[in-house]
């Protein structure tokens, strides 16, 4: 994770559009300016960043599902539960499962695990819409390669 750059996913470890499942490794950094404010003397990963981690993990599946033909935007978070504090240095595993692939939207169920224990969960609704600019699509493709999304999912040509 690079919290200051909103890069929550380090590595996609499983991505299977056929069954609608994605998993990713996400290691909380040992130090970050975020922890200076959240909280002084008691650094923990902000809950909103746990949700963002789930959203990004699910987003990789949705993007791969359509070979980056459209962008996905988080639109709704439902039934979010933040079950435990997450300290700097924690190795997290994020998992997201496709609940429904609608037309112009998708719904996923995500959960975040630390050492096999669930620390967060939420149902996430995304809008699926054309990339606003070609540059953003190029950046998303570069980010996908950085996190290890297989080449077979990267091209809609």
């Amino acid at each position: 994770m690079r919290l200051e750059y909103f890069q929550m996913v380090d590595r996609v470890t499983l991505l299977d559009p056929a069954v609608g499942l994605v998993r990713a490794d996400c290691r909380v950094p040992d130090a970050s300016p975020v922890f200076e404010g959240h909280f002084p003397g008691h650094p923990i990963l902000p809950g909103v960043l746990m949700i963002e981690t789930l959203a990004q993990t699910g987003g990789w599946l949705l993007l791969a599902n359509q070979r980056f033909g459209n962008m996905v935007f988080l639109a709704k978070v439902r039934d979010a539960k933040l079950r435990a504090f997450v300290a700097p240095g924690t190795a997290l595993e994020a998992e997201a499962r496709l609940v429904h692939d609608g037309s112009g939207y998708a719904v996923m169920a995500g959960r975040l695990l630390a050492g096999g224990r669930m620390v967060a969960e939420a149902e996430l609704t995304y809008r699926v819409a054309p990339f606003p600019t070609p540059a953003l699509r190029a950046q998303m493709l570069a980010a996908a390669r950085r996190v290890g999304v297989a080449e077979e999912w990267l091209d809609d040509a």
Binding site: K76, H100, D101, G102, S103, G104, Y105, T125
Partner: peptide, 17 residues
Amino acid sequence: LDVAFAIDKAFGIKMPL
């Protein structure tokens, strides 16, 4: 979107929005 999700689920369809 919520309504569409509910309709899709209830009727087992994918409305082509």
